[in-house]
Design a protein around this nucleic acid. Sequence first.
RNA 1: UGCCCGAUGGUGUAACGGUAGCACAGCAGACUCUGAAUCUGUUUGUCUAGGUUCAAAUCCUAGUCGGGCAACCA
Length: 604
Amino acid sequence: MSNLNNENVPAPAVAPSDFIRDIVAAHVAENRYPRIHTRFPPEPNGYLHIGHAKSICLNFGIAREFGGICNLRMDDTNPTKEDIEYVDSIQADVNWLIGDWAEDRLGLKPLGKTPETKLVNEKPDFQMAPIFGTSEVERKNSDAKFEPFYASDYFDQIYEYAVALIKKGKAFVCDMTPDQTDEYRRTGKASPFRDRSVEENLDLFTRMKNGEFQDGSRVLRAKISVDAPNIWLRDPLLYRIKHAEHHHTGAKWCIYPMYDFAHCLSDYIEGITHSICTLEFEVHRPLYDWILENLDLPRPLPHQYEFARLALGYTVMSKRKLMQLVDENLVTGWDDPRMPTISGIRRRGVTAAALRAFAYNIGITKYNGLTDVSVLEFAIREDLNKRALRRLAVLRPLKVVITNYPEGQVEEVKATNNPEAPETGWRKVPFSRELFIEQDDFQETPPPKFFRLKPGGEVRLKYAYIIKCEEIIKNAAGNIIELRCTADLESKMGGATAGRKIKGTIHWVSAQHAVDAEVRLYDRLFTVPEPDADGDFKTHLNPHSLEVITAKCEPAMLEAVPSERYQFERLAYFALDLDAKPGKLVFNRTITLKDAWAKEAQKK
RNA sequence: UGCCCGAUGGUGUAACGGUAGCACAGCAGACUCUGAAUCUGUUUGUCUAGGUUCAAAUCCUAGUCGGGCAACCA
């Protein structure tokens, strides 16, 4: 797969510039940190999607451009929603996306390693340093095993920090019900438990940890303010009780830290310098800072920066909605090629390089826009045009008999593998008396400007002869089932009349040599640009988002491999699907070629 | 409703007080043994109103519109 990432595809000419990179560049210029350190912290509660790809490209891109590191971290503080399946898929997707590009910037840790306690400026400090700078291949060949970081690996340390806040009188155990807590926070009233003694808080928090209390009966809250304008500063929750097994820590804990408490501390423990997240966390930033600033931490503190998440036309992006599509079998799985998930996009045949180019092209801002799918489609086509091997295949066959071509004769014509990459050479394609052409390439009563095959008209068969349609044969129902044509037998490449100017050139396959392939034609999943703008997004599902047909391919397709990309000439780009087996070709249509004729024909 | 954030062609972005540029999309043309690719040309824009300044997309004030947050989710 590695050759798919860079070969033949130019890197973006200039490194992108945006407000976050500007900030990082300024910090580098003033030597604020010994090294730039970002992180990509997904919660393992679903598969990664193209919005995450934007974040991955940002965080790893910065690490790459500024000589830094980007940690992969599972933000796993809620055991009831998370699962090991997602941990595995996240790793696979990240490795695929950054492979050959920022792989050497990926921060991982030795398997099973937990934070070390060190003395910094005479203060105890928890640290979790990454290993990095090894490629995936090197890691696989090494005896040592590596894994991503897990917020759950810091539960001991985060607990210690909670105790420290309690001891400073900056956190308290609250016994109100969830509803009461909501009510009090909304109205700016102080919890009746706010002024418990340090001793009582310590005792209660220990007993929370020891499992003496029911879920929901008590929480640990920071003591910041009862009526701050920013709700997140109104004595926010730090810990809640959940008697649940955790996919990574097992049954060790029955209290789990909230996102706000765990995230900033995880960043600190890992030595993150720039904690980049999406806009909805903007209002959490004061809390992020408050926690870190109230703990007497000896090392430089990380800072949070926010950017706008990706919204893409004709799809949905929330994990909840994507999971609904999966659970209700509206798609075949998280990696269904119609899904905006990284695994779906990959299965569809899009390369990592194309996805990265897309991420670069859309930029990073704080403006919540809706990116047109054409931007994604352009990145995919541009990438595939340069790398895809050209092949002849007919999706909807129409039989053609060349009446002046000898029965039983077979010849092989030379066909270019990829005009964009001449070094890929050429192959032989068999030609014979009976062929298949595309049904769309013939019209009995053609509209104006139709320069394909028509009665009495001529067209060039790509790499072969110019043919003329002499006769149409129909069945009893009146449908065209066969065309009788004559060929200009001197018009093949190098022939006497090869230079004749014929407006149309069409693709074909020799009937007796054609191989069948299952072809899955995908279209957008939804019929409207913003499926979740109103009501139920599922009412906007495109009923024609998948069509499965059997295509007739030139015999070279028998040698198709998953790592390659193919262009069925004049039609679309295709990639071999996971479901393909020896003797059973299955192709996914990644994306169609641009079709100027379809546009022209629509103008009527 | 409170708090926070944002607003540049159809879409996504750049311009960091000094010529509003790029990409996608669109349109027109050239070329073409892929109606692809490539090449050329081109339509379209600074939310509004005040202010500061020789000069404002940029700074200030107000408004308008849009988004986010107000989970014992992240």
